[in-house]
Amino acid sequence: MKWMNQVWGLHAKPGTATRWMVGLLPFFLLMAVYMWGSHVRHLENEQDKLLPTPTQIAGAAYNAAFEENRRTGEVILWADTAASLTRLFIGVGLAALSGLVLGVLTGVFPGGKTLFHPFLSAIAMVPPLAILPILFITLGVDEVAKIALIVLGLFALIARDMDLSVRALPREQIAKALTLGAGAKDIVFRVVLPQVIPRLIDATRLSLGAAWLFLIAAEAIAAESGLGYRIFLVRRYLAMDLILPYVMWITLLGFLMDLGLRGLLKLWFPWYVASRN
Rank of each mutant, 00 (worst) to 15 (best):
A122Y: 10
I187M: 15
P133W: 03
A79Q: 08
L94F: 13
P194K: 00
K266L: 11
S165Q: 13
L169T: 06
L213W: 02
G140K: 09
V234F: 06
S207P: 03
L264H: 11
A184M: 11
M35H: 07
D142L: 13
Q56L: 12
D258G: 10
G183Y: 06
L115Y: 08
L242Y: 09
L77E: 02
A130C: 08
W3Q: 12
I197R: 00
H117M: 15
M125R: 14
P110D: 13
L149I: 09
L208C: 09
M162N: 01
L10V: 10
L267C: 09
F109Q: 04
R199P: 01
S38Y: 06
P128H: 04
V108K: 04
Y272G: 06
L264I: 10
L129P: 12
K266D: 12
A182W: 06
V92C: 02
L135D: 00
T55W: 15
I174A: 15
P26H: 06
D202Y: 04
P110V: 06
K146T: 04
A217G: 09
T179R: 12
L215N: 00
L253S: 03
K176Q: 15
F119L: 14
L139G: 02
W20R: 05
L152M: 12
M240S: 07
A17G: 04
K113I: 02
R167T: 13
L100R: 03
Q47P: 07
Q6I: 02
